[in-house]
Design a binder for these strands. Structure first.
Lengths: 205, 205
DNA sequence: TAGTATTTTAACAATTCTGTTAAAAGTAAA
DNA sequence: TTTACTTTTAACAGAATTGTTAAAATACTA
């Protein structure tokens, strides 16, 4: 067995599969297109991954694994200010989103909601750290307390995710090229960080 | 020809198609499932709509036509305050989103970006009304002028769209049932209206 | 009610796609 | 160089899916 070559073939397949699944979704993806992109015979896909489904799961799992570490931002050390934590999260999140993995995950979860429960089983505990952290901030009077932390959760994630997922549509609506939209978006993390901080700061009425 | 009956069959098919296309997407949709849902023979789909593609286009067009009127919110009459306009828009937008049409449109545009240009041709002019309107508000010193109107556009649309598109994931992350999430979301339009108004109000520094 | 047009169905044709298999090509080691 | 093992390919089988067609059922009109 030539381990080196074998690995690189597998890697080539995975890279191609990622691209195709991300842009076409599971249903729209074609094994033929994946093998073409990887520059190999279609039968090799089955040699390495057995079925389309198994290959898909591998891609899905990997996308999820890349995402999950972001959540540890909300581990409760209060050394770092919440403003910094927030900025850090937004930048990391948006960087992740630029890989297109997020729209992929979302689309496939909607196609097959069982994926959510089965695949995030082991990360279950991580999921509600955000809310715990923000509730704590409220207790400590560090942020305003009149907005449900769950809304804050939804707002922050929406502000990060959607502008990237929806880039094609936004650039079209704003009548600028996708390239110009990307350029515009370089300033975006900074802007929403500032706006969110402004909004969340504790305010004595 | 029995016009009445014919229409209702066509309507039944369209309703079924809408449902299936919206939940499965073009690639995942099956003609069989659509005809089953409509309670008719599969060949009838072709009798009425010729091909899957044509049927899809009909559904797509109709979703777009339902959406486009929302944009006239930003026609420039300055009678109504911008705060009220904004609230009105958010409520109408979120109502529309609850029909699932938006995720459908977005997903299919990503699958086939040409749809965007070809299908919105005739609405082209409407698309940049938002930015014009907000630029005007800035000139008149009615809102803060230090945030690019295009960011405001992106922010508002993201805050409206994503919480509904991503409902399944959010409810899972927040560890509440989809039903509870829906209930939580009844308060959402109010919240973001208020937050956005707070944020955008003109502030002398 | 008879005749005509429309709507609906069952059966079939054609294509597309996934997955299998047996053989060829390539690699490594004795 | 021969042998054994791994990787790759071409050809094929089977299933699923879209689209067609001819005939049956239904509705409409004179």
């Amino acid at each position: 067995m030539n381990l080196e070559t074998s690995l690189s073939t597998e890697e080539a397949i995975l890279a191609a599969a990622r691209k195709v699944f991300e842009s076409k979704g599971f249903d729209g993806a074609r094994m033929q297109e994946i093998s073409d992109r990887a520059g190999i015979n279609r039968a090799l896909l089955h040699y390495y991954f057995r079925t389309k489904e198994k290959m898909f799961e591998r891609i899905f799992d990997e996308a999820l694994e890349r995402f999950m570490p972001l959540l540890s931002t909300w581990d409760q050390d209060l050394e770092e200010s919440w403003e910094l934590k927030l900025k850090r999260f937004i930048i990391k999140f948006i960087t992740f989103l630029k890989t297109n993995s997020m729209l992929f995950l979302l689309r496939e979860i909607i196609r097959k909601p069982e994926l959510l429960a089965s695949k995030t089983e082991k990360h279950r505990k991580k999921l509600n750290k955000f809310v715990l952290y923000f509730d704590r901030l409220k207790q400590e009077r560090l942020i305003r307390s009149d907005v449900d932390s769950r809304y804050i959760y939804v707002i922050i994630h929406s502000l990060c995710s959607f502008p990237l997922m929806n880039g094609i549509v936004f650039s079209y609506s704003l009548r600028i090229s996708p390239k110009e939209y990307d350029e515009l978006m370089t300033g975006y993390p900074e802007i929403i960080s500032d706006l969110l901080i402004q909004l969340l700061k504790y305010q004595k009425n």
